[in-house]
Amino acid sequence: MPSDARLLLLDKNEVEALLLPDDVMQAVREAFVLHSQGEGRVFPVVRELLATGGVFGIKSGDVQAQGLLGFKAAGFWPDNRRLGGEPHQATIMLIDPATGRPVCIIDGNAVTTMRTGAAGGLGLRQLARADSTRLCLFGTGVQARVQLSFALQLLPALCQVRYATADGKPDAAFEAHFAHRCDVSHADDRNVAVSESDVVITATPGGGALFEAESVQPGTHLNCVGADTRGKRELPQGLLERVRLFVDDRAQARQIGETQWAPDTPCTELGDLLTGNAAVDRHPTDITVFDMTGLALQDLTVARLLHQRAGAARVGSSIAWSW
């Protein structure tokens, strides 16, 4: 057995330095396409509640033709906020499919944030009306910020943002972060904000319905990020029955996404739009929803990009990992 095998470790700072939004967008798009073409496999998701109050999950998959194999172990630990830490935690491992040996271990927090933002951006580009000018955002955390950043980048007409917070209070830091890019202000009435918006993005922990179904007007598009576990939801009861539903993975969305609340709702996978296997044919009065549960393939294509870039730049810690 070889005794000179190495394992590359990429920490938070190294990952953040190597991640570029446009490159992540391309890697995430590739993941959707591979999934649609049946070349990339997504294995059953592990997503379980812990006695500590956290949620632990594993997303894994492979692309056999490309020698790409790996997983992300991740979850949500709300008590981390009391410690001054980030509640979302993730670690990605790339594995040599020929031997089963680990090749690279990557801090997955920034990867998860960026690839989810990029997936949301692709959803907006495919499904939202190009002339959308008004957006309602639920949440002001890390994921809400990246979703809004991609939205402002990909919807050029977008100029007005109303946001809602869990405590119903304005978030001055959030407003300052985006004030130079749009007219941003706190929504005093979330139902009114939804009714006046062309795009709605929900990026919360998924603790319950965020607004009333009747507030969603014809022509609205919704990106839903927070429902990623059995029992979570952000959309009100009865809304999915009125919409044209799009998902990243049909089976996964019915298991842990918004679609779990209306599993018989017809849906289309976003990757099929990107490959031309399906068409949107959006009518002006259609309400569209993109139920985002996150694909393992997104983590793997972005992780491979980081592994290659780190090798070229000689970034990271290489440690002996002999057989």
Rank of each mutant, 00 (worst) to 15 (best):
V28F: 05
R29E: 09
F32N: 15
Q37E: 15
R41C: 07
V42S: 12
F43G: 00
P44D: 08
R47L: 01
L50C: 07
G53D: 10
Q64H: 04
Q66E: 14
G67L: 05
L68F: 04
G70E: 13
E86K: 05
E86L: 06
T91Q: 12
L94I: 08
I95G: 04
T99S: 14
T112F: 03
R115G: 11
A118Q: 00
L122K: 05
L122P: 08
G123K: 08
A128G: 01
T133G: 13
R134D: 03
F138G: 05
V142G: 08
Q147V: 12
P156Q: 14
L158I: 11
C159K: 14
E175S: 09
A176H: 04
S197T: 01
G208K: 08
A209G: 14
A209T: 10
S215F: 05
H221R: 07
L222E: 02
V225P: 05
D228H: 05
R230M: 07
L235S: 09
E241T: 11
R242F: 07
D249K: 10
E258W: 03
Q260Y: 04
A262M: 06
D264Q: 11
T265D: 03
G271I: 14
D272H: 08
L274A: 11
A278D: 03
A279Y: 04
P284C: 04
G294V: 06
L295I: 06
A296S: 13
L306A: 15
H307F: 11
H307S: 14
A310W: 01
